[in-house]
Simulated assay, not measured.
Amino acid sequence: MNEYTTKNQIFLKHILPEVPPMVCYIPNFITPEEENEILQRINCTPLPKWTQLSHRRLQNWGGIPHPKGMIAEAIPGWLAKFVKKVSDFQVFESHTSPNHVLINEYLPGQGIMPHSDGPLFHPIVTTISCGSHTFLDFYRRNTSDQLEVPVLEFSLLLERRSLLILEKDLYHNYLHSIAERNSDTVSNEKTKNLKLCGNAYTDNEQLERGTRVSLTIRHVPKTSKLKLKLSK
């Protein structure tokens, strides 16, 4: 059995059949030592690298995605090795390699509104969670012209050090979000990946949030080595 076969079997073992295609959830994808390294590196990043938003702050590595094309930049070695660790699982097609990392920092009580990753990216999103858990909520995209209040369909518990992979129907036809709250309640009915989690949880268990840092590793198909006028 070669290395590719072993990794492919691990990948298939962690696909979640209870939700639309597709979710792959791998607990303890990175070690505690690797998690500490990531957090230390991110905390030492110069302030100009951070973009401060109203509900979180973030860093872009590899460039800043734009409809006219992302001006490709080198990803630093400490981060590139985690990009490679994800890529080695053959998550992306053979002709596609991840070339962008979005780092988000969420303090307790912070979150993000329902959204999709959109057409700037190859339709596969992979996320490593560090520092704290969170719950990722999913809503079916509204395809009608009528204004509708999104209805929560299900949630995923993202443990620290885990890897989440989303693609296919969940990428194209669903929105995902993180609620702005300080703690989360486990639900046997709504939390669909409990059987794949690294720890055991009980129904209605309360989980207090800490500061979470996520590494969203994706492929931007349209890139350029030339500086473009991106203002319009």
Rank of each mutant, 00 (worst) to 15 (best):
I217W: 00
P76G: 08
T5V: 13
A74Y: 09
Q52H: 11
K229H: 12
P108N: 07
N204R: 09
A179C: 11
D88T: 11
I38N: 00
Q59R: 13
K84F: 11
A179R: 14
G62V: 03
E148A: 10
Y106S: 05
V101C: 05
Q9E: 14
I38Y: 02
R141I: 10
T191A: 11
T6G: 02
Y106V: 03
P119V: 10
V19C: 09
E153C: 06
N104G: 06
S97V: 12
P48E: 14
H115W: 12
Q110R: 02
P32H: 11
T126R: 01
S129H: 05
I128N: 02
S214H: 08
K81P: 01
D145F: 12
H66Y: 06
P114N: 10
L107V: 08
V23R: 01
I128M: 04
T134R: 01
I178L: 15
E153H: 07
T31E: 05
H95D: 14
N188M: 10
T6S: 09
Q40I: 08
L157S: 02
T202A: 13
V101F: 00
T223Y: 09
H66M: 08
Y174W: 15
Y139N: 04
I30P: 01
L16M: 10
R140S: 10
L147F: 14
K192I: 00
F82W: 04
